[in-house]
């Protein structure tokens, strides 16, 4: 990480207008991950720094959402695991979280499902999102479902990315747990690179909103 990407605690508070109390409270509630508190020495001794883009974005989101949701609900939105264990496919369609088309595709691979676990809901949600944006084909959608089903369990609650590349028309889909930078030869075309954490946040907001 470069020096420029870090922001000191003092600058952060000035920039965002929050107080020390709020910052510490959000830290206690796990709204801000421990890993973002970076200790560096400075002229006053040890100081705390944060990754600038991530923390500013997170604080903006907390400020926007904290009026509607309690801090505990917010923490749940930001955490990669979920308390929603499962929902029936009908409720999901009725609540407009996923379309019946995406569920049908999912069921083509795994047979009929009455209820879906959170991981499966996430899979269907991703599937629908990518199909709608036209980034993947039906066949690749099936790959997605299989990859998620087989591997996401082991990665659950860890930040990871979903990546699709194509070379000479051959698609290759993978889940990367920590891939800051990957390089391929020039024939390889990046189709998309999706942070699962962001999708999980979106999905959870949808789940929570429709519950209320």
């Amino acid at each position: 990480m470069n020096e420029e990407d870090l922001i000191s605690k003092k600058e952060l508070l000035e920039l965002t207008g929050i107080s020390y109390g709020q910052l510490y409270r959000w830290k206690r509630k796990n709204l801000i991950p421990e890993a973002w508190f970076v200790r560096r020495s400075s002229f006053t001794g040890q100081e705390t720094f944060f990754p600038k883009d991530k923390i500013l974005q997170r604080i903006e989101r907390i400020k926007n959402m904290k009026d509607g949701l309690s801090l505990d609900e917010l923490a749940d939105v930001f955490s990669p695991s979920s308390h929603v264990e499962s929902l029936s496919t009908q409720t999901l369609i009725k609540r407009n979280i996923v379309t019946s088309f995406a569920i049908e595709l999912f069921e083509e691979e795994f047979g009929r499902q009455e209820t879906l676990s959170f991981n499966d809901i996430l899979t269907v949600y991703l599937l629908q999102k990518l199909l709608q944006s036209g980034e993947i084909t039906r066949e690749e959608g099936k790959m997605l479902v299989t990859v998620m089903r087989e591997n996401y369990g082991a990665l659950a609650a860890k930040p990871c990315e979903l990546v699709l590349i194509r070379k000479m028309g051959v698609p290759l889909l993978f889940l990367a747990e920590s891939a800051e930078q990957i390089y391929f030869d020039k024939d390889v075309k990046w189709i998309f690179r999706l942070s699962l954490a962001a999708s999980i946040e979106e999905l959870k907001l949808k789940l929570n909103n429709t519950e209320a």
Binding site: K9, K10, S19, Y20, G21, Y24, T44, G45, Q46
Partner: peptide, 19 residues
């Protein structure tokens, strides 16, 4: 070393930075 808070009242305290 550091004490940071919204409302702070201190007695008999040795600290490098209070904010």
């Amino acid at each position: 070393h550091t004490i940071e808070g919204d409302d702070i009242y201190l007695e008999h305290t040795e600290a490098e930075i209070v904010r």
